[in-house]
Amino acid sequence: KVLVLALYDYQEKSPREVTMKKGDILTLLNSTNKDWWKVEVNGRQGFVPAAYVKVL
């Protein structure tokens, strides 16, 4: 399983997205889209901007 680090806070803007806080460790589920990556955080799955996270 691939983990990513949240570099910035992100507030979800649609039901398909998830909120994350800077420093959160998320599970990367899909990174085929260069702009939006699907992650799991706190038991929820959704998209975050790829530029806001870094693969650990």
Rank of each mutant, 00 (worst) to 15 (best):
K1N: 15
K1D: 15
K1T: 13
K1S: 14
K1Y: 15
K1L: 15
V2P: 13
V2F: 11
V2A: 11
V2Q: 09
L3A: 06
L3S: 10
L3H: 12
L3T: 11
L3D: 05
V4D: 00
V4T: 03
V4R: 01
V4H: 03
V4E: 00
V4G: 12
L5V: 14
L5G: 03
L5T: 09
L5C: 07
L5K: 10
L5S: 06
L5F: 09
A6T: 04
A6L: 02
A6W: 01
L7Y: 04
L7F: 04
L7M: 12
L7H: 03
L7R: 04
L7E: 05
L7G: 03
Y8H: 15
Y8G: 06
Y8C: 08
Y8N: 11
Y8K: 12
Y8F: 13
Y8D: 12
Y8R: 11
Y8S: 10
D9E: 06
D9G: 06
D9Q: 03
D9S: 08
D9N: 09
D9F: 04
D9Y: 04
Y10E: 00
Y10M: 01
Y10G: 00
Y10D: 00
Y10L: 01
Y10W: 13
Y10I: 01
Y10A: 01
Y10N: 01
Y10C: 01
Q11G: 09
Q11S: 15
Q11A: 15
Q11M: 14
Q11H: 14
E12N: 11
E12Y: 04
E12H: 10
E12F: 05
E12R: 09
E12K: 14
E12S: 12
E12Q: 14
K13P: 05
K13Q: 15
K13Y: 05
K13V: 12
K13T: 15
K13G: 11
S14H: 11
S14K: 06
S14R: 09
S14I: 05
S14Y: 07
S14W: 07
S14A: 09
S14C: 07
S14F: 06
P15V: 13
P15C: 09
P15L: 11
P15I: 09
R16Y: 14
R16C: 13
R16H: 14
R16E: 14
R16V: 14
E17V: 06
E17L: 06
E17I: 03
E17D: 06
E17S: 07
V18E: 01
V18A: 06
V18S: 03
V18H: 03
V18W: 04
V18T: 08
T19D: 04
T19N: 07
T19L: 03
T19P: 07
M20Q: 02
M20K: 00
M20D: 00
M20V: 12
M20L: 10
M20F: 10
M20R: 00
K21F: 12
K21N: 12
K21A: 10
K21W: 10
K21V: 12
K21M: 12
K22C: 07
K22P: 03
K22N: 05
K22F: 06
K22Y: 05
K22R: 11
K22E: 10
K22M: 11
K22G: 06
K22V: 11
K22W: 04
G23I: 01
G23Y: 05
G23D: 07
G23K: 02
G23N: 07
G23C: 07
G23S: 03
G23P: 00
D24K: 03
D24C: 05
D24F: 04
D24N: 06
D24P: 00
D24I: 04
I25N: 03
I25A: 04
I25W: 05
I25C: 05
I25R: 06
I25D: 01
I25Y: 07
I25Q: 05
L26A: 13
L26G: 12
L26H: 03
L26R: 01
L26P: 02
T27F: 10
T27C: 08
T27I: 13
T27P: 15
T27R: 09
T27M: 13
T27Y: 11
L28M: 05
L28T: 01
L28I: 05
L28G: 01
L28V: 13
L28A: 02
L28D: 00
L29P: 00
L29A: 03
L29Y: 04
L29K: 04
L29S: 03
L29I: 12
N30I: 10
N30K: 07
N30E: 13
N30F: 07
N30L: 13
S31E: 09
S31A: 13
S31Q: 09
S31G: 14
T32F: 11
T32S: 12
T32P: 04
T32E: 15
T32R: 10
T32C: 10
T32W: 11
T32G: 11
T32H: 15
N33G: 15
N33Y: 08
N33R: 08
N33A: 12
N33E: 14
N33Q: 12
N33L: 11
K34Y: 07
K34T: 11
K34C: 08
K34H: 13
K34L: 09
K34V: 11
D35W: 13
D35Y: 12
D35T: 12
D35I: 11
D35R: 07
D35S: 10
D35N: 08
W36I: 03
W36L: 04
W36D: 02
W36C: 05
W36Y: 10
W37K: 02
W37T: 04
W37R: 02
W37V: 09
W37Q: 02
W37S: 03
W37M: 05
W37D: 01
W37L: 06
W37N: 02
K38S: 10
K38W: 14
K38D: 05
K38L: 15
K38Y: 10
V39G: 00
V39E: 00
V39P: 00
V39S: 00
E40D: 12
E40K: 06
E40T: 07
E40H: 06
E40F: 06
E40R: 06
E40I: 06
E40Q: 10
V41F: 11
V41A: 15
V41I: 15
V41T: 12
V41Y: 12
V41E: 05
N42V: 09
N42G: 13
N42L: 13
N42R: 11
N42W: 09
G43R: 05
G43H: 09
G43N: 07
G43Y: 12
G43K: 08
R44A: 09
R44H: 11
R44F: 07
R44W: 04
R44G: 05
R44L: 09
R44Q: 11
R44C: 06
Q45H: 11
Q45S: 13
Q45P: 06
Q45K: 13
Q45W: 07
Q45V: 13
Q45R: 12
G46D: 01
G46M: 05
G46N: 01
G46P: 00
F47V: 08
F47Q: 04
F47M: 09
F47R: 04
V48M: 01
V48E: 00
V48L: 02
V48W: 01
V48G: 00
V48T: 02
V48F: 00
V48H: 00
P49E: 02
P49A: 02
P49M: 03
P49Y: 02
A50G: 06
A50Q: 07
A50C: 06
A50R: 12
A51W: 11
A51F: 11
A51T: 14
A51S: 09
A51P: 09
A51R: 12
A51I: 11
A51D: 13
A51N: 14
A51E: 09
A51H: 12
A51V: 10
Y52T: 08
Y52P: 00
Y52N: 07
V53I: 10
V53R: 00
V53Q: 00
V53E: 00
V53M: 06
V53C: 10
V53G: 01
V53N: 01
V53H: 00
K54E: 13
K54V: 15
K54T: 14
K54I: 14
K54P: 01
K54C: 13
K54M: 14
V55Y: 11
V55G: 05
V55A: 07
V55M: 14
V55T: 10
V55S: 05
V55N: 06
V55C: 09
L56V: 10
